[in-house]
Structures are given as structure tokens and as C-alpha cells.
Nucleic acid binder design. Structure first.
Lengths: 224, 224
DNA sequence: CCCTCGAACGGTACTCAGTACCATGGTCGT
DNA sequence: ACGACCATGGTACTGAGTACCGTTCGAGGG
């Protein structure tokens, strides 16, 4: 027995013990003992006690970075909302493991904080990518980048949490829908916008809203 | 000498030592020694080594909670963007202290993570407030609440960081401007929207974009 | 003036996470 | 059979955080 690599056995032992006694009540020695390995081996496989639950955020972050670097999308926001799908797919791929982790992070503040910190790293990556893509160091452009990154991450989190709670049958479809929602929040501004050469366009379309409700949006769309 | 209460002297000693040797290179014993108190007294005043830098996030969180509970604004988003001003004002009130903390959180990952976790608590509070205010348990409403909370927090962070870096002379004006930006992202939907009775509206407006670029946005605006 | 109560303090001893170092045993290629 | 290279286990250490206990000091109350 105990043929499987130590890394796997350690994770199994950790999750089992966390379920039985709770996270704080479980020591690293306990985990190592149940896994049938030495304490040293634990820390060789996982940098910390928390890390045994969040295995490969770094790897995933690199994956996202690559995806962004090699992406050829029309806008930064599209590229980012495409990249964030990878994160969701990764969680879905983990399946039950992700759900068990969710159960833990919901109860243990230290783990919740760690999860949040990880997500913040994605958000930062997105923010920097968008800001760089826009190439506009203005404060207002920077704010826009920040808002976009935050929206994408928030939408992702929303869908992910729904799936983790078992409230979602088709998270991939949901995330696409959510990203459309996010996209709609940030209408694309073409370069000439708000500047001198403004032509006149007349568009006819159907809407249930009355004109007063529609006007502010349109004004935002067209003006600066 | 050493008349000032231990709590103050500990904080002073901590900041001084962190500046001199760095955060990780400073032990709690060092801080206590320089403050002229025992190690026990340190932990009586601050729950952890990190806490000496982030004194009163809990108090501020309660303040925000109260503000939201007693707020009478037209929309949840307005109430929240009003509440978040309190956070900014609190930082500004701290003045140089906030800037020194920023210098530390920029360099020490553990502190950055802690800061992020604190911010996440505000965001969570906002999200729950907005969701409750809307009283609509739909997934789409929930997403909307999540997006709003994220946007408000992102906008706040943007202004705060600018001020912390000394890039902003009038952060209060900036945060108001940023909040207007956020407000504009989420146009108020009138009750009948998206339902059966679809009329036809013809709107004329000026734009430098050509029609092809404009069409997808308009379609998104009207269809869903 | 003395006594008591309580709060703040200092010290000791403990648990546990994380690090550094070293010694051992097995596996591979040659 | 030899040495090189791993992964592993063990020991010892640092430092954060907790529990407990004895002391001191100051504010009343008799």
C-alpha cells in the first residue's frame, strides 16, 4: 500500500483531517503522520500548511499570463474576460476537490483571506494588462482599467461561487453570459470620440424604455 | 519619561524598527524592548504583529455598517458610494501614518495580503447591502450587486492609491468624480424594461464612429 | 491609616509553523 | 561495483501566538 506519491497522500490526509477535526485543530505533524511520511516531506511538497489546499495558483497565474501575452483580441476587456474563463475551467476541472476547499474557506478565516489574496493577484494582473493595452497613463484611463479588472473578477467570482454551491448546472454558459454583461458595462470608445470630427448618425432601434430613461446612457455613449 | 500609553509607544517603536530593519527582520521582542514594555503587553494591545500596522479596521467597518443602516438614499449604489467616502476620509485623516503603512504594504507580501483581506470585507459588506436592498434573489440581480460592489471598491482603491503615492492633491474631489463614473456604469433600470411592451424609438445623436462599430453595442443595449 | 479590589504589567513555559542542516537509503548510468 | 543524484527522515532552531501566574500600583471604603 501507500504506493501513490507522497504529495497526493499528503493532500488526502490533510483534507480528511480538516474535515474531521477542523483546520486549526490539525497540526502539520498530524497530516504527515497520517500520510505516513516525515514532517520534512510535507514542507518539501507544500510551502505551508495552507498551501496544501491551494495547490497550483502560481501555475495557473502563469498560464493566464501567457494567454494574455499571446492573445489577439479586439479589446483588452475581451482578452481578459477570455482569460478568466481559464480560471473557472480550472476550478471546474478540479470538481469535488474545489467544493471541499470551498467548504473550508467558508469556515476558516485564515483560508478565506488566502483565497482572497490569490484572487487579488489575478485582478492585479488583469488591471496591469488592460492599463498597458490602453497605453494611456491618464488617471481616468487608469480608473477605467481598474474598474474593468474588478468587474471581470467579480463576474467570475459570482459564477464560480454559484457553481461551488451547486446552484449552477452550466457554469461555462453562465460565465459567458456574465462576461457579456460586463462587456456591456464598458462600451467601446473609438479613438476619435469626444474630439473634433463628429459626424451625425441616425439609428433606429426598438426599446421598451422610454426616452428619458434612455437619454443619459446615450449621452454617455456619445459625449466624452 | 515614557509617559505616553504603551499602545502608542508600541506603534511608534514598530514603525521605526520596520523602517530601519524591515518587517521580517523585526521580532515582537525587539518592538517590546524598544517600547520599554514586556512582550506580553504587546500582545495585550495588538492581537498580532501585523495588527500593529492596521489598528482600527474593525471599528471603521462598524462605522460603515451603521452609515449604511441609517442611510436614506435613492439607490443602493448611491448609498454605498457615499459610505465608501468614509473609508477614504479615514485614511486621509491618518495622513502620514497611512503613507508609511502604504510603504510597508508595498514591500511586504504578508502585509499586502492582509490589507487586501480587509478591503474584501468592505466589498462583501457592500455586496450584501446592495443585494438586500434590491430584494431580488435572481442570479442576474446578484451578479449586478457583485459588480456594483466591486466597482465602488475599485474606484475607491484607485483614488486612495493615487493619494497615497502623492499623485493627488484633492482626493475627495477625485473620489466624487470616480463615483460619478461608477454611477454612470449602472444606469437605473425602470421596472418595465426588457419585458413585453416594446415600442419603437428613433434617436438621433452624434458620433465619430461608423455604424458598424456602433451596432453591436446598440444591439446589446436593446436586445437582452 | 490600613485594607481590599481590580486593572495593567512582566515573566515563564508551552504549542506550533516554518527553516536549516545533515545523515541515510535507494536508483540510475557507467 | 562505483559514484552521482535524488527523495526522505531526523534533529535542532527561530519566532509568533497563547495560557497562566505572581506582582505592582492606584482608587476607593472602612
Amino acid at each position: 500500500m501507500s504506493k501513490s506519491p507522497a504529495r497526493i497522500r499528503l493532500a488526502d490526509a490533510a483534507f480528511a483531517l480538516f474535515d474531521e477535526r477542523g483546520y486549526e485543530q490539525t497540526t502539520v505533524d498530524d497530516i504527515a503522520e497520517r500520510a505516513g511520511v516525515g514532517r520534512t516531506t510535507f514542507f518539501r511538497n507544500y510551502r505551508s500548511k495552507e498551501a496544501v489546499i491551494f495547490p497550483d495558483h502560481d501555475r495557473l497565474l502563469d498560464l493566464i499570463r501567457d494567454r494574455l501575452a499571446t492573445s489577439s483580441h479586439s479589446t483588452a476587456l475581451v482578452a481578459v474576460s477570455d482569460a478568466v474563463r481559464l480560471v473557472l475551467l480550472h476550478y471546474i476541472d478540479e470538481g469535488d476537490l474545489a467544493r471541499r476547499r470551498y467548504g473550508l474557506t467558508s469556515k476558516v478565516p485564515a483560508l478565506r483571506d488566502r483565497e482572497i489574496a490569490s484572487v487579488a493577484r489575478y485582478q492585479r494582473l488583469f488591471r496591469e494588462f488592460i492599463a498597458e493595452w490602453m497605453g494611456d497613463p491618464t488617471a481616468s484611463a487608469s480608473l477605467r482599467a481598474e474598474l474593468m479588472a474588478a468587474a471581470v473578477v467579480a463576474a467570475h467570482n459570482h459564477v464560480l461561487r454559484r457553481w461551488l454551491r451547486g446552484e449552477s448546472r452550466d457554469p461555462v454558459a453562465e460565465v459567458d453570459e456574465a462576461m457579456r454583461e460586463v462587456l456591456a458595462l464598458f462600451p467601446v470608445r473609438s479613438p476619435g470620440d469626444g474630439s473634433a470630427e463628429a459626424g451625425t448618425t441616425i439609428v433606429a432601434f426598438r426599446s421598451a424604455r422610454d426616452l428619458d430613461a434612455l437619454l443619459p446612457e446615450l449621452r454617455r455613449l456619445v459625449e466624452p
